[in-house]
Simulated assay, not measured.
Amino acid sequence: MADVAQLAGVSSQTVSRVSNGFPGVNEETRSQVLAAMKELGYRPNSAARALKRGEFRTIGVITFSLSSTGNVRTLEGIATAAAQEGYAVTLLPVAVPTQDEVRGAFSRLGELAVDAVIVIMEVHLLDAVRLQLPPHVKVVVVDSDAGDRYTVVDTDQAGGARAAVQYLLGLGHRTVRHLAGPEESYAAERRTAAWRAVLTESGCEVPQPVRGDWSAESGYRAGLVLAEQADCTAVFAANDQMALGLLRALHERGRRVPEDVSVIGFDDIPESGSFLPPLTTVHQDFAEVGRLCVEGALSQVRESGTARGTTLVETRLVVRGSTAAPAG
């Protein structure tokens, strides 16, 4: 900064004001300072700025998995929303959901100097190992029911599942089979519970769910089982990838979709409209989830406090060609 000031013929304070975009510097002086910066290759030291302000303009994100569509698209939404606010994102995957691993992740993020932390993890994992997030850390939790302890942002899992099952029953199906996600998943359990509740309230038979692991391959294996059940006319799959595998299995076993079996997924991934047939599914607004996560984190940063409670992002049913009234 002293070198820039000497070359431009101004004080270091003037260089600082130009560097930080403060008003009150005439245009001729500002142009001289900017020209000197360019000639000397000067760039403001962001670390020094952060220490002076006590703010790093960085949000940390902890996640247990980057293999699921939901986590990846939520992370994309967080990164986009953070960038719009002028914040960077530091990602820290945690391989094993233990107290020590999560405590270590928070310690590493502290060393990397972040202003707040967004945690993408399942409350089942939290409860299973009795995880406690460090106190006095500004935290937003995604996809959990820990709203009494932290700020939580989630998709309306139950509402989306209810809409899917009610739609199939409204078409005339006597019951709906369920291709569920993994038991340890909070989102999967919410969707399963809503499926079961709608069938019970409607006086329908509640079949045993067939469980997958979110992958298309697991949907295919489950589909081979469901295809052998002659009375299976409708299936609600807990995500679109498993629905894709299900469609393949039904096709291989000669069960037509939607003439013989109707299929609904969950997520509305970009490719779902290109499935054969195009998939009826529940749309999740991952961009809005990401935006609300960043908003919740920054509100804690700016207000220097913590907040608790859950914000749900609405879903909507997207009807395409994979659903129809049952034959006959």
Rank of each mutant, 00 (worst) to 15 (best):
L199E: 00
A297M: 04
L92E: 09
I269C: 06
S299P: 11
E85D: 11
R53P: 00
H124F: 03
L7F: 00
I59C: 14
V94S: 08
R174E: 01
G41K: 09
G265P: 04
A105W: 12
V176W: 14
G328E: 02
A164T: 14
V165Y: 08
L279W: 03
A187V: 08
P97T: 05
D268R: 13
G160F: 04
P134F: 08
E259W: 12
A237E: 06
Q32C: 04
E101I: 07
A95M: 12
L112G: 13
N26Q: 11
L169Q: 12
Q6S: 10
R211A: 15
V313P: 06
A197V: 06
N20S: 13
H178N: 15
F56N: 15
R190C: 15
Y87V: 02
F236R: 09
A105C: 12
G21C: 07
G305D: 02
V33R: 09
A193L: 09
R190L: 14
S215D: 14
I59W: 04
A82V: 08
Q84N: 10
V152Q: 13
A161Q: 05
V114R: 03
R103K: 09
S185K: 08
D231A: 05
R291Q: 15
A237Q: 06
L226N: 00
R149F: 10
M121Q: 01
S144T: 03
R291T: 12
E39M: 09
E85V: 07
R291E: 14
E295A: 12
G181L: 00
G296P: 12
G110C: 05
I264M: 08
T69K: 13
L92V: 09
E271I: 00
A158D: 10
Q13A: 11
H251G: 05
A82I: 05
V294Q: 11
V4A: 15
V289G: 01
P270Y: 12
A2Q: 11
H124P: 01
V119P: 03
E252S: 09
F64N: 08
H136W: 02
A47F: 10
A216Q: 11
Q208R: 11
A146C: 11
L109G: 07
S11E: 01
T233F: 00
A325V: 00
E295C: 08
L247Q: 11
Q208H: 06
R17L: 00
L75K: 05
G70D: 06
G86F: 04
P258D: 02
G70E: 08
L109D: 11
F266G: 10
T90P: 03
L126Q: 14
L168S: 15
P209G: 13
A48Y: 05
V225F: 00
D145W: 10
R190W: 06
